[in-house]
Amino acid sequence: MAVKEMKKLSIICEKEAQERILRVLQGTQQVEIDDIYADSANEDWLKEYFADSQQYEDSGNTEALIRQIQELVRFIRDHGSAKEKVTELKRGVTSFGDFEKTFDETKLKKELTTINQLKERWDQNLAATKQAQAQEDWGTTWQNLDIDIEESSDKNVTALIGILPNDQWEAFQDQLKQTTQIYSEYISNDPKETAFALLYLRKETPDVLELMQDFGARSETKPYPGQPKEILQQAKAELTQLAQERKELAQLIGEKKAQVYHLQQAEEVLLAQNQRELAQAGIVESQYLAVIRGWIGADEVPILERVLAQAFPNEQVYLSLDDPTAEEIAANKTPTKLKNNPVVQPFEMLTEMYSIPKYDEIDPTP
């Protein structure tokens, strides 16, 4: 088997008709659009006939919308209530033309805004939960602290709370016992560290700090107002409230699983639209005309001619077809399409995994 014979096509049409033509070409799924500006061989006739043409610049809006759909579909799947089932788009059941007819960008954006608001509320809940968990952890560590650090400080006496490694606690206590001017109190410990409080004369502050440094202890700043037990109770109450809010949000998000089908449908339309926008960057436009160039398999030309005639029955489009030149083949500008019988076709993906043959080479798939 050899690679498929290709034809180079050129289409000249009214500027306003190029979007319709791109839809027709896209519908055949057989045409590969060339970027006319990227080929230096086109420079001379571009300067002569299209000196004032400007290359189309993609705004990126379509790609941004596609990314937003993909992100929000993942969000719905991951965070929606498990009681609701995702309604997926069944590939190949509906024609692409039907997709485009039912596509409503305004309605889509409104739905995305609604889902995005749910996502923002979910993210805010997670951020608040993280803060409340940190508050709960701190309150759990210091709940046995029965003095107010701020109120215990006056002109002569001050206090601090600190943490040091468990293996240093006994030695630290022994050192503290050697002085009667520092009062220490054990608060709690975890597998690695011990929490403690110190009460001492203000004039002893340099000695206390030096002692803590010797034992690898660090002072803690009280991050929340109120007593530690109150702080812990507030954190637990807030976590309970946030958990209930997350449950309610999960239900609302789960209800959006029924919209996944429509979101995927819109994604298909936008992906096709994005492909047309990318192709449009390689199309040459004048004030009134547009020139489209590309490649098509020789055996698919009749299909193209038929669909163009149906879409533009009054000869509104000029189509020319040429064989690839030796220079184009040598420069590897001619795309390769594999052509095999139904028995061999499934194995074309093995060839594509390694290297597609050049246009003038033999297809190794068989």
Rank of each mutant, 00 (worst) to 15 (best):
E111M: 12
T365A: 02
F172N: 03
I69R: 04
L252I: 05
G139A: 04
T28E: 04
V343F: 11
P335R: 02
A309Y: 04
L46F: 08
A38S: 10
E16H: 10
I292W: 02
A41Y: 11
N144E: 07
K90T: 14
A64R: 13
T102H: 12
C13S: 07
A127S: 06
V93M: 09
K85V: 08
I303S: 13
S153N: 14
L319Y: 02
W295N: 02
E230D: 14
P335G: 01
T94D: 06
I11C: 02
F103P: 09
W45D: 01
L211C: 06
T205W: 01
E136L: 12
E19N: 14
S81V: 01
A281H: 12
K177D: 06
Q234D: 11
Q30L: 13
A132Q: 05
T113Q: 12
Q55V: 03
L199N: 11
V208L: 01
E220S: 08
A195W: 02
K119V: 00
T194P: 01
V317C: 02
G60T: 01
Q55R: 15
T194K: 00
W138A: 03
N42R: 08
Q310M: 08
Y186G: 09
T325M: 02
V317N: 04
K358Y: 07
S59Q: 07
L160D: 15
G216I: 04
R91E: 15
G97T: 04
I283L: 03
K101E: 06
A41R: 13
E220Q: 13
I12G: 05
L160N: 14
R67I: 08
E268Q: 10
D52E: 14
D154T: 00
V317T: 05
L249H: 01
A127G: 05
A281T: 15
I11Q: 00
T240M: 06
V3K: 03
